[in-house]
Amino acid sequence: MELIDQVSISALSKRDLLLIIKALEYTNDNTNLEDFIELRNNIVKELCFLTNTTEEQFVTYLESSN
């Protein structure tokens, strides 16, 4: 198996991205492990950078399709 240096999200739907973000929030809330919220924040920060949006705009966009 080849080592993976980067993961592509191009195959993920908006719904999948929203589920990942919400799952990380839920897990952080229920375990109080900061790693989950840090991962959530890093993912959202990178996606906002790539889409030139704020966090609020990006999450609203993901939620609008559900």
Score class of each variant (00 low, 15 high):
Y26H: 10
E34W: 05
I21L: 08
D16M: 07
A23K: 10
I37K: 04
I43V: 10
N32G: 07
F49N: 15
T54P: 06
Q6T: 15
E25A: 04
D35R: 06
D29C: 06
K45H: 14
F49Q: 09
A11W: 03
I21F: 02
S13M: 07
C48F: 08
I9T: 01
K22Y: 04
T51G: 05
L19G: 04
F58S: 08
Q6C: 05
F58N: 00
R40L: 04
L19V: 11
N30Q: 15
A11Y: 10
L47Y: 01
M1S: 15
M1K: 07
E46W: 08
L47E: 09
V7P: 06
A23E: 10
Y26F: 11
T31P: 11
E63I: 07
S64L: 02
N41C: 09
I43G: 03
L33Q: 14
L19S: 07
N28H: 08
D29P: 00
T53Q: 14
T53F: 09
A23P: 00
N52K: 14
L24I: 00
T51D: 14
V44L: 13
C48G: 01
E25S: 13
E34V: 09
F36R: 02
D5C: 13
K45D: 14
L17M: 12
S65R: 00
D16T: 11
Y61K: 05
F36E: 10
T27D: 04
N32A: 01
I20T: 12
N41L: 02
S8V: 02
L62K: 00
F58P: 03
T53V: 00
E34F: 08
E46Y: 03
T54D: 06
S64F: 01
S8I: 08
S13C: 05
N41P: 02
V44H: 03
D16K: 13
V7F: 13
E34T: 07
L12E: 01
A11T: 13
Q57E: 15
I4D: 11
N28D: 02
E56D: 14
T27E: 13
R40H: 04
L62Q: 00
L50D: 15
K14M: 09
A23Y: 14
L18T: 11
D5Y: 14
L17K: 10
T54N: 10
E2G: 03
E34H: 09
I4R: 12
F58Q: 04
S65G: 00
D5K: 10
E55D: 14
S65I: 02
K22L: 05
I37E: 05
E46D: 04
Y61C: 09
D35T: 13
S65Q: 08
L47A: 08
L17T: 04
L12D: 06
T27N: 09
L33Y: 14
R15L: 01
F58T: 01
V7L: 12
I43L: 15
E25H: 08
S10Y: 01
T51S: 15
K22G: 05
L39Y: 02
K14N: 09
Y61A: 07
Q6G: 03
V7D: 12
S8Q: 09
E34N: 06
T51V: 12
R40K: 05
I20M: 15
F49A: 07
E55I: 08
T60D: 13
I21C: 01
S10D: 14
S13E: 12
L12A: 08
L3G: 13
